[in-house]
């Protein structure tokens, strides 16, 4: 598999050099592997820190900036970052109002962020954490690691970031982040697996007639394998999974997310079905995003995330944001 890389061992560092060169609005600490907004720390403002394996770009580094994250820590490809990075990031964004860690629910991310939060407390930094677990493909039970954090991470980062920008206290920002997560559900479908550069071949094999339902964002296979069919039917399978979990109604925010290797053309074909599905159920997509936001390297496929909005959440979603990956109103 051909990849545009210099060497497998320098992927993350080389990416950070590019991010630094491309986005003067960010300050990139390449040695410690932290991406900051240039004006961090902001006095009196809650600092938002997220992080996760590389390979999901623009998540998380592309969402650093005004109205969203204050810092992001990228790990190796599909590997959570380490506590040192999170501590460094937390110190760098703490403006005296505390720091919120936004953590996707994967065992590695959870363990490393837990260790970091403990060490931050030792250093006198007040840290609250919110766990994102929106993926309905996984049954939340004693028999799994719990639902994964996927597309709703973007909702949490945007909406909590907007609230933090108003000077709200840490407990309030954490509560709202939690509420966004609880109101959000996601489901993903892959037509092909992504290729981790170090492995050099796709993580799993799908034939031309197969699709994988209920995929995560780390190239892990999904819950079931099924037969490939029209976009219309696949979109409905994904929406059924979400609607079966929490019946859709009212105003919604919808993210039709490409996994990295899907043409926008196809995403729009799927989105048309998603919008029609919502209407059938008596729900309305009042805010929408279609594009590559929470990717899985070069995986072909999509995930759909739906957040049931309140007036407060809609207002905060609409608030100005200025990051490499999301930008409006400013």
């Amino acid at each position: 598999m051909k990849k545009l890389i210099n060497s497998v061992d320098t992927i993350v560092t080389d990416t950070l050099h590019g991010v630094a060169a491309a986005h003067p609005s960010l300050r990139v600490d390449i040695e410690n592997r932290v991406i900051y907004r240039r004006d961090a720390p902001r006095q009196g403002k809650v600092g938002l820190v997220s992080g996760g394996g590389a390979g999901h770009e623009p998540l998380h580094g592309g969402f650093v900036g005004y109205g969203m994250l204050d810092a992001a820590c990228p790990g190796e490809v599909f590997t959570s970052p380490v506590p040192d990075q999170m501590i460094e990031a937390s110190k760098g964004v703490d403006g005296g109002a505390g720091v919120l860690h936004i953590v996707k629910n994967y065992t590695g991310d959870v363990l490393n962020f837990e260790m970091a939060a403990e060490l931050c407390a030792d250093e006198g930094i007040e840290v609250a954490s919110v766990l994102v677990n929106d993926d309905v493909a996984v049954q939340d039970s004693l028999y799994t690691a719990g639902r994964r954090g996927t597309g709703a991470t973007l909702f949490v980062e945007k909406i909590a970031g907007a609230l933090a920008e108003t000077g709200a206290p840490l407990a309030e920002v954490a509560r709202l982040a939690q509420e966004v997560n609880e109101r959000s559900r996601s489901f993903g479908v892959a037509l092909s697996a992504g290729t981790v550069p170090a492995a050099g071949k796709p993580t799993f094999d799908l034939s031309d007639t197969e699709i994988e339902l209920g995929i995560g964002i780390h190239g892990e296979p999904g819950r079931t394998r099924s037969t490939h069919r029209e976009a219309r039917e696949i979109a409905r399978l994904a929406m059924d999974a979400i609607n079966d979990d929490v019946p859709l109604s009212g105003d919604t925010l919808v993210l039709l997310n490409g996994m990295g290797g899907t043409p926008l053309l196809e995403l729009y074909i799927v989105y048309a079905e998603v919008a029609a599905y919502l209407e059938e159920k008596g729900a309305t997509a009042v805010r929408r995003l279609v594009g590559n936001y929470v990717t899985s390297l070069d995986m072909q496929g999509f995930s759909v995330s739906v957040c049931r909005l309140t007036d407060e959440l809609t207002r905060l979603w609409d608030a100005p944001v200025e990051t490499p990956g999301l930008r409006w109103g400013r």
Partner: peptide, 12 residues
């Protein structure tokens, strides 16, 4: 190991 590995295996 905790500082360098990441993932679940680093902390474990």
């Amino acid at each position: 190991l905790i500082r360098k590995v990441g993932g679940a295996s680093g902390p474990l």
